[in-house]
Computed example of a mutant assay.
Amino acid sequence: MQYKEIDPTDPAVVKVTSFFEGELDAKFNGTVHKVAHFSDAQRQVVNGFNYLLTVVVKATTAADENEDWVLHKVRVYEHPAWDTSAKQKYELSLDDVPVYQSGPDVHMWPEAVLYAEEQLGGEYTGEVRHSEQVVEVDLYDLEAGHSTVMVKNHRVYGKFVLEGTERFVDFTFVTKGDGQDGESSPFTYFDKDVQDPVPHGGGGSGGEGGKDVKLLTMRTSMIAIFLVGLVVCGILLVHVFRKRHKRSKEDWYIEQLTDIDEL
């Protein structure tokens, strides 16, 4: 059996992802599910294909529009084209959803501490609750062989008291790797105030931050304004050119009429 890492934007993976989202929607009535982040995506060649995905799913409850981000370890089997006995093309053969766990061993990442301090408007003291989902992902490579990596979905929430003022924080982020000795792999925040995942760079508290949604929006706006400016300038140039060309023709006619009058 051969495993291969694949791009989540691959059309085949997009179809598998849509199937998985539909299965979750059918299983949980009144809840809309959307894969928000891929922590791992592999394809196994068997009698057909096995798609092995480790994803964070955004679940939105229709009744109260409550949002939650849940880690899933998924295996979807794609029946081969010649399998005429299959009732449907895809089959969900594994959906492992680890329960949240908490305790003194739960590691609070430096970047998450900074984020919590920004949200709370003060210094983080560890009084908020921190729990996590944990899955072990098997990685297969023809050269490096077999290895494993830990993927964790963290949730930080609870009340925080600062100088007599109560603050509340509730956000989720996903990590890949152990994050020991200040080493952290890139991870992503999922916040109720953020409509899309915001990637952040690793490397401890001094690591480079990822692209901010506001920054991306600002850059997009600047590019749009620049393009609009180019279009406006082009229209003005065409207008000036046509106006000058029209004046040249009028001057020529006037000169011809003047010559006729002189004759």
Score class of each variant (00 low, 15 high):
L139N: 13
G209Q: 13
E143W: 13
Y115T: 00
V149M: 12
Q180G: 04
K192T: 13
G207K: 12
T188F: 10
K192I: 12
D212R: 15
V151Y: 02
G164W: 14
L120Q: 07
G206R: 09
D193W: 02
E123R: 15
P199L: 09
D191H: 07
V149P: 03
V151R: 08
Q133Y: 01
S185C: 14
V156Q: 11
S131N: 13
R167F: 02
M150F: 05
G164M: 11
A116N: 04
R155V: 00
L142T: 09
P186K: 06
D193S: 11
E127C: 01
G158H: 06
V128P: 04
V194C: 02
K176H: 01
S147E: 03
V174G: 04
V151N: 02
P197T: 04
T165F: 03
D181Y: 06
D178W: 03
G126Y: 13
Y157S: 09
D138K: 13
Q195P: 01
E208S: 13
E136R: 14
S205M: 08
K211N: 12
G158T: 08
Y115D: 11
D141W: 15
M150K: 14
D170I: 01
G126N: 08
L142K: 14
K211W: 11
G145S: 08
N153D: 10
D191T: 03
G202T: 02
T172E: 10
H146D: 10
R129W: 02
Y124A: 06
K152Y: 09
V198A: 12
D193H: 04
K159D: 09
F187R: 05
D181A: 12
G207H: 06
